[in-house]
Design a protein around this nucleic acid. Sequence first.
RNA 1: CGGAGCGUGGCGCAGUCUGGUAGCGCACUUGCAUGGGGUGCAAGGGGUCCCGAGUUCAAAUCUCGGCGCUCCGACCA
Length: 568
Amino acid sequence: MRLSHYPINTVKETPAEAEVVSHQLMLRAGLIRRLAAGLYSWLPLGLRVLQKVERIIREEMNRAGAFELVMPVIQPAELWQESGRWTKYGPELLRIKDRHQRDFVAGPTHEEVITDIARRELKSYRQLPVNFYQIQTKFRDEVRPRFGVMRAREFIMKDAYSFHLDEESLREGYRAMYDAYTRIFTRTGLKFRAVRADSGAIGGDVSQEFHVLAESGEDAIVFSDADDYAANLEAAAALPPTEPRPAAREERRKVATPGARTIEDLARFLKVDPARCVKTLIVEGTEGAVVALVVRGDHELNQLKAQKLPGVASPLQLANAARVQAATGTEPGYVGLVGLECRIYADHAALALADFVCGANEKDQHLTGVNWDRDVPGATPADLRKVVEGDPSPSGRGRLKIARGIEVGHIFQLGRNYSEPMKALVLDEAGRETALYMGCYGIGVTRIVAAAIEQNHDERGIIWPDPIAPFQVVLVPLNLQKSDRVRAATDRLYAELTDAGIEVLLDDRDARPGVKFADAELLGIPHRLVVAERGLEAGRLEYRHRRDRESTEFPAGEALSFIRARLG
RNA sequence: CGGAGCGUGGCGCAGUCUGGUAGCGCACUUGCAUGGGGUGCAAGGGGUCCCGAGUUCAAAUCUCGGCGCUCCGACCA
């Protein structure tokens, strides 16, 4: 491809709208353009990257035996009413009406449609197991789209759905997708990690996420330093302390703590470690009453764990000030445990404390020397907190470390969550009707491109991993317009590499060297060849990988073999 | 949905407070020079100043209403 005829504009200045580096670089390099909030056009150069990612995905999905199909973006509301998600999904689901005032949705995902296909097409266990996938545009009306294509409203997703006669087959199919995903992300050239996850809104029992590791990632993932345990922070269990609780030594005392509403204030005021205080959070329960959740002062509540407890409203909702007042007799900031009437869940780490500090249920007052059995009988032990770095791994080996990641894939075992309400049934060997077991498997295709840049860039621009680079080689002739020798060598080289099937971007613009180098680095083409009078005098060309600091020279006649060796 | 901010050629911004000829840098076009790290000189093209209403002799500028966007939070995967 000749750059002089390629529709691309690079930009020196960073657009004001872009916050994260991948978004900035995608705009500056001319990969995408914004149409409206969370809506992006993919320009030709960006599309080349996208298609490389799609190709890898297709090859591996096909290799895993899945069948590609395409389903409509617009879906009738009836299907969503059948599955129950018409009411459950919330405002992220874009609902639209056609000219007859019939309700439709812009598909954020396709469980309903594929289940409809399954119940029509799959009649017999002989047709199972089967896996369908598509690569297609999804729409989720995000409250706050941000970070360019990383969290867009419209994005491209690879979604796959498998159907099985029984759980064992589902587990096999899930395992096959886990392996396919591992191959896919390995082939993109990105550093990634598979972690255990909570299955969230889509529902189901078992699920894992694939994260591209990047400092700027939105998600925290935890892993053991001693084995292969890895989980989303939300899904990581906190083990109860192994040491027994010390005996109570202090008497309970009420102390004045004017204005100390937060643990931080309290710890500073009383000159006590936050880890010797407890936080009491009042949340809405399921039957009108409130529930108290207790975590150690230096720990944070894990919302996901909390809302799974019996009697706690899901989604978790903190009680407002009036409800707190009614339940405790005081305002948030001074809520405590002694004499509290409602149900109390206490985190294991909080339960391990003796002689701790908590609110006194009285404004500007706290209690010290509080002890569980003596002062607060009847608290239910629970795992309530977010794990922190250094916690013992739930796997029993090693300690937890925390890293940042960008979620690019998610696989679920859905079981019969959709097939039962939507009556997707087949006949088994005995001729009995039985509901299908189902798995679903997503990859954020457009997000992979942004994640690749987050993980691979420097101050000059993008550094594409070879497998998804828009071009493999950028050919930079210097003084092309004036030097016949440079022109002849360039034309010959471009033809030779192109004929060999290598994707070459030839910068044949009448621009000065600095401009060409700067653009080549911004665009992030991994391999750069420079053709110049200086080298040609000695019969040599110049090569530099985007990650290299220095160029290397080699004989001009060996260009093809030299490059091939580097393309791997 | 709550808070903050922004809207002026394609991009980045000044001008708005204190009303009076719409400006700068980048990009783009043309010419000449230059040719190993965003080069120089010169000449050009391109703007309903987000929209609407109002005040005024006069509105980018003041007032009111609306729309759009960005960031933080809540929310969500």
